[in-house]
Design a binder for these strands. Structure first.
Lengths: 208, 208
DNA sequence: GTCTATAATTCGATAGAC
DNA sequence: GTCTATCGAATTATAGAC
């Protein structure tokens, strides 16, 4: 490996600061100059390492998705190979738990990551699509397994019901840390309670 | 009244175009020059009539809230004075129906308005607060009447459950017109079906 | 009320030395 | 890989004539 002693190399430092600023201010509200100022690096470095503002954004999205999507799919994999379809509660826990547990497992960085995930999926077009396509695979798998759990509902019905679950996930993640939110801090207890509540709420709606 | 024969005066024209662009591109992604170009007015006109970009934004929010909030409160008023508390389904219909019926009642302008309402409530801080405070009154009233319908749940519980309903409303409005969305067009039939589905979904969750 | 002209910044991006 | 310097364009906002 290169630079084994480097605590935080330039590229990673830019990614970290960019993730926070994109999360707080959105794509359009974030400036490269603001990022490099907080990151303590040169303006030319971001173009050297990433090429453009949009490519930096995609790099942040990819790093997040690479952590979150496999966690969801692994959780889901426990049920996919069973002959008996899982309960909707099991499916929804596989949906909500991985992104929410990021918060308590990663500390301060987890709250930032949560806010970013919530923010990026509500961006105006065409920026939103840069994130959506990274989560499409996971979304399809959840739709497939929901279809097994509810064979008497049409795929279109399950599609928009899953969209409502996504709406709830996005908002909950985006508002993390704000007072009066379901998740105000990043303690493990708080996160686990939130998961249980979200799973129950959405599961009831899915059955309707 | 002034200028009775003016089909669309400058101020209203700016508001209309600004609402569309804020809805599509968000606050940070919208430029005054883009607005005045599409509106066919002068750049100085927006400062003369509104003062600044942020004050223009607030003017758009106020015009929307002035239409939507009274509609919700009037719908809710039918139940507030009864000795018998209304069902969750009634409350949630008062919550979802007015903003969604805007879409079918206002035609093309209704779809834009829906997207704006969804967008403005998901803006980064501090812009989001400019909208939130206009909807706070309505939100409190819904919380009060939910407390009457569910006297055995704590106010904090009902608070975050209402937040989940808001999350669903925001996302549904913001994605109006996108393919695969719950509301793809603006026909009255489509909107009424969506209202019924949302009410059922959320009401089940509220009871959980 | 509407217009032109422009001030004063800030933006993303690049060239080229080291 | 990192830096300085800068380009060209775009931004909000204002001053002042009409």
């Amino acid at each position: 490996m290169k630079h084994a002693l480097t605590v935080t190399d330039t590229k990673e430092q830019i990614l970290n600061v960019a993730e926070r600023q994109f999360a707080e201010k959105g794509f359009a509200g974030t400036t490269l100059r603001g990022v490099i100022r907080e990151a303590g690096v040169n303006i030319a470095a971001v173009h050297y390492h990433f090429g453009s503002k949009e490519e930096l954004y995609v790099a942040v999205v990819r790093r997040v998705a690479k952590q979150m999507v496999p966690a969801q799919l692994q959780h889901l994999g426990k049920y996919e190979n069973l002959k008996q379809p899982p309960s909707v509660e099991n499916i929804m826990e596989a949906f909500f738990a991985p992104p929410l547990r990021m918060i308590s497992q990663m500390g301060e960085a987890g709250m930032i990551r949560a806010q970013f995930v919530g923010r990026c999926r509500g961006e105006p077009l065409p920026i939103q699509q840069l994130a959506d396509r990274e989560f499409d695979e996971s979304q399809q798998r959840f739709l497939d397994i929901l279809q097994r759990a509810f064979p008497d509902q049409t795929r279109l019905q399950l599609k928009w019901k899953l969209d409502l679950a996504i709406a709830i996930l996005i908002r909950t993640l985006n508002q993390v840390g704000q007072s009066d939110n379901l998740i105000g801090g990043n303690s493990s207890e708080e996160v686990e309670i939130a998961i249980e509540r979200l799973v129950k709420f959405v599961s009831q709606g899915m059955k309707a």
